[in-house]
Structures are given as structure tokens and as C-alpha cells.
Amino acid sequence: MSKNTNVEVLIAGGIAAFTIDLLVYPLDTLKTRFQSRDYKRLYYDPAKNAVNKAVLFRGLYQGVGSVILVTLPSSGIFFTTYEAVKSGCMEINPTRSGSQHPLVPLPVVHAAASSIAELASCLVLTPAEVIKQNAQMVRRPAGSHHSSFKQSPTYQVLQHFKKPTQLLRGYTSLAARNLPFTAMQFPMYEHLKRTINSSRQKKGKATGSISELAAVTAVSASAAGSVASFITTPLDVVKTRVMLSAMDKRSDNSSSPKPSGSVSPGKGSAPARASRGVNIDVARQVLSESGVKGLFRGASLRSAWSALASGLYLGVYESMRMWLGERRVGTAGTGA
């Protein structure tokens, strides 16, 4: 397969992200609710001493619109940056004297490329994440339906933000979670994919087909994503708390009432002190409230969600990238 163009990488990444957003979004909503400091207050029924499942599982697609809106640009930025940095590093990476192995190990190259790509992608993704996670926490009455945009959780959340810069609150928390995650996931993913492909070639089972690429990629990405997700759960808990608290300081001098059904994470949380170690403050708060167990709240759900999402995401991305490349070459050959 010929090298893909930036447009092909952009399209493949956008289609993959859009597909995953629709399929696994409910699991992401549940994870957000589990990690919220208001989890017990909103979703636990003390009278029955059990979780109120009817409320917990209601509105699982709340806030999905904001994510879909930035799917194409954020995923496109990530993959075009990742592929460009990886290719550039591979070209200038010298080999060791008397050896075919590169001087800089491939896992380091993959970690560096994914980290740089993540920093760029997070700039686009942060506003959508802030809106999404706050919308996921809006409680709707049973049997309610949105007859207009103004009644939607997303609109209710947007009313709390008076300045566009408030939507960037949480960038450092998102980057602090995503950088270690991608720095671990992509080297493991690339190594597993290379190992599986090598094994299949030695056994004479390699076909070079799109379906084989999709299957190998999905298995490799699923395993890598699951491990990386579990390890970085404490960072995800902190990120969730910071983004949910973004509405809390929307306008201290504003007298406008809160939209019906909206949730505020409570005064005294750390969102206004982003420049003074907000992530550390939130981590300490979680530790004081729930101990180490609190930092790993939702770890199992997040690992399962990431295994499914990573496998489908990168599987669809790689197979679409291969299909687009082959289609372009085939079309050019036919035209010749």
C-alpha cells in the first residue's frame, strides 16, 4: 500500500472517531457519573441502600453532540501529527554501528509521536470534553424528552459559560491524563501489532488483506488500551472532577439562575486555581474523601470501555486508511 495522503489520514481518523463516539458513548457517560463527587448524592438510593439504576442509566447519550462536532478536527489533528512525527523520526533515526536496529528505540519514537499529537489534539478536544461531561451529569425527569434545543442538557450547560476561555479549563488535566495514556498505549500497540504480523508471516498465514489488518489492529489496540487505561485511571478521575467543576466558577458575580435539572459539583472545589496546582488539589481531595480506592473509581469500567473503543477505533482507522490508499492507487491505475 502506498503512503497515505494527509486527507486520507484525516478522513480515516474522522470516520473511526465518529463510529466509536456513537457505539461506546453510553459507557463513557456511566464512567463520568461513577467518578463524579456527586455520584452517591445523585444516583444512590439510601432508602434501598442500592444504586438507583433508573436514574443512573437515564440519558446515556446526553452531550454527544458536542463530541461529534469536534470528532473530525481533533482526530484528524492527532493522526496527521502522529503519522508525520513518526515518519520524520524514522527517517532521521540513525542505526547503530554494525546493526540494523535504530539508535533511538521504536517505543521511544512512538511515545514521542503520540505525545506531540495528543498535545495538539487536546486543544480542540478540551471544550467538547468540558461540555460533554457536564451534560452527562444533568438529571432529567423520568419520561422527559427534548422538544427543542433549549431543553437539551447541552444547551443547559452552555448557559453556564459566559466566556469562551472557560471552556478550556481542564486542558492541563486532559493533557496530563492523555499524554501518559498515549505514551503507554501506542508503543504497546505498535509492538503487539508488529509481533502478531511477524508471527503470521512466519507461519505463512499472512494475507495482507484489509480484514486481516483490521483484526490484528483491533486485538493489539484493545490489549494496549485496556492496560494503559487502568494505569492512568487516577489521572482520569482528576480530569473528570476538574471538568465537572468548570461550571462552578462560571460567573461568581452572576445572578442568573441555574438551568432546571443542572448539577453543580459544589463550592470549594479547585477549578478557579488552575494555575496553582489544581490537579494536585483535586487528587488530594479525592484521597481525603475516599482514599486510594477513590482514585481508581471506575477503573474496571474504563478498562473495558477503552478495550472496546481502542480496538474499534484503531481497527476502523487502519482499515479505512488502507482502503483509501488502495482505492486511490487503483483509480490512478485505471485512469492511466
Rank of each mutant, 00 (worst) to 15 (best):
R139T: 14
Q133I: 09
F149T: 11
L123C: 13
S144V: 05
S115H: 04
A120I: 09
E118W: 05
R139I: 15
A112C: 07
M137C: 13
S114T: 05
E118G: 08
A142N: 04
H145L: 14
S152V: 05
S148E: 10
N134T: 08
S115W: 02
I116K: 01
V130L: 07
S114D: 06
S121I: 00
S152R: 01
A135C: 10
K150F: 11
H145G: 02
K132F: 06
I116V: 13
A128V: 11
K132V: 00
A113S: 15
N134E: 09
I116P: 02
S114G: 05
S152I: 04
K150L: 12
G143A: 12
Q133V: 08
L119N: 05
T126D: 12
A128F: 04
I131S: 06
A120Y: 12
K150S: 13
V138P: 08
S148H: 08
S114W: 07
I131C: 06
T126G: 07
F149D: 03
E118H: 07
V124C: 14
G143I: 11
V124H: 03
A120R: 10
R139P: 03
Q136R: 01
E118F: 08
Q136D: 10
S121Y: 07
H145P: 00
F149G: 00
A135N: 07
Q136A: 11
V124Q: 03
V130F: 03
P141N: 11
F149C: 04
K150P: 00
A120L: 15
S148C: 14
Q151I: 02
E118R: 08
H145D: 07
K150Q: 11
H145A: 13
S152E: 05
S147F: 04
